[in-house]
């Protein structure tokens, strides 16, 4: 099996609305992929198909398995957190661990208990007694105790405060991720995850507009902080975007004429979110 996930000409229609248009994408082992796009771009639709929660047209294989037809089989090898705090409210912590242990062949209850011992969560708590952040911690503890080849996180930290969000990604990176595993993340808070990503995929109106690894990305795009004296010259190289900070202009360029532009000011690596905004605007123009 070459790819963890491979999609070829994947399409999805809701009535007349084409939610996914000829999506082609391959994801390999050991990557942390950020799936980034504006609201309604098709991120969740794509992930639902990947997780076997909905059907789609085209060739979609996750670990060589057709997700929609064999979701139960697939879930032995992958796991996901779709949305925050979706654990059932009535269940006790001990019950959710027991249920997962009995239904999941790759779940280690000892490990989950060990993760939970570092939190304030007690075994006889009910989920409805936990705060939103603690529920997310519990869910993460369960997911991290599953020996899965692929982990999919769809807005796993939406609505959590900054402390929980930071801890969430720290735990994920330090206690879970290794080169045998693969993670796909979508989130609106791109700034918080961009330092952990190995690859980014931009999706817009159901189409993949960019699929690159972070190194490629930072070598093919760069930002230059241009002072007033070089402003006109820099502008003539047609920056993708431009913003003004402390009297200087920060311009984003494609790498084609890097040698020349580098001389115009201080070069810096663009953030994924700036790049995202730039590419989305470019597409619209």
């Amino acid at each position: 099996m070459s790819h963890i996930l491979s999609a070829q000409n994947v399409n999805k229609k809701f009535g007349n609305f084409q939610a996914l248009k000829n999506v082609n994408i391959n994801i390999d082992k050991g990557k942390i992929v950020g799936l980034i796009g504006p609201n309604g771009a098709g991120k969740t639709t794509l992930l639902k198909s990947v997780l076997g929660l909905d059907s789609c047209d085209g060739e979609l294989k996750v670990l060589g398995i057709d997700p929609f037809r064999k979701r139960a089989d697939l879930m032995k090898e992958i796991c996901f957190i779709a949305d925050v705090a979706v654990l059932p409210k009535w269940i006790k912590v001990s019950q959710v661990l027991k249920f997962t242990e009995q239904t999941h062949p790759n779940f280690s209850i000892e490990q989950a208990k060990q993760f939970l011992s570092r939190t304030k969560i007690k075994m006889d708590h009910k989920v409805k007694e936990l705060s939103k952040g603690m529920t997310a911690q519990l869910h993460l503890a369960i997911v991290m105790s599953i020996n899965a080849k692929l982990l999919v996180l769809d807005e796993p930290t939406l609505g959590l405060d900054i402390l929980f969000r930071k801890q969430f990604y720290d735990n994920l990176l330090n206690d879970y991720f290794d080169n045998e595993r693969t993670i796909i993340i979508t989130t609106h808070q791109v700034e918080e995850i961009e330092h952990i990503l190995t690859d980014v995929v931009f999706i817009r109106e159901g189409e993949i507009v960019l699929d690159a690894n972070m190194d490629e990305l930072t070598s093919s795009y760069f930002e230059v902080m241009v002072g007033q004296e070089h402003y006109e010259e820099a502008l003539s190289h047609k920056p993708l975007t431009m913003r003004k900070v402390f009297g200087k202009h920060i311009m984003l360029f494609n790498s084609t004429s890097r040698d020349v532009i580098e001389t115009l000011g201080e070069v810096q690596r663009p953030s994924v979110s700036d790049l995202f905004v730039a590419l989305m605007q470019e597409e619209q123009a």
């Binding site: 929660l53 089989d73 879930m75 979706v86 654990l87 409210k89």
Partner: peptide, 20 residues
Amino acid sequence: DDRKDGSILFWKSLPVSDTQ
């Protein structure tokens, strides 16, 4: 009820078929 409160997304993340 599990669709209403979203917990279906947790149940479906476990290897349990819908038939079961």
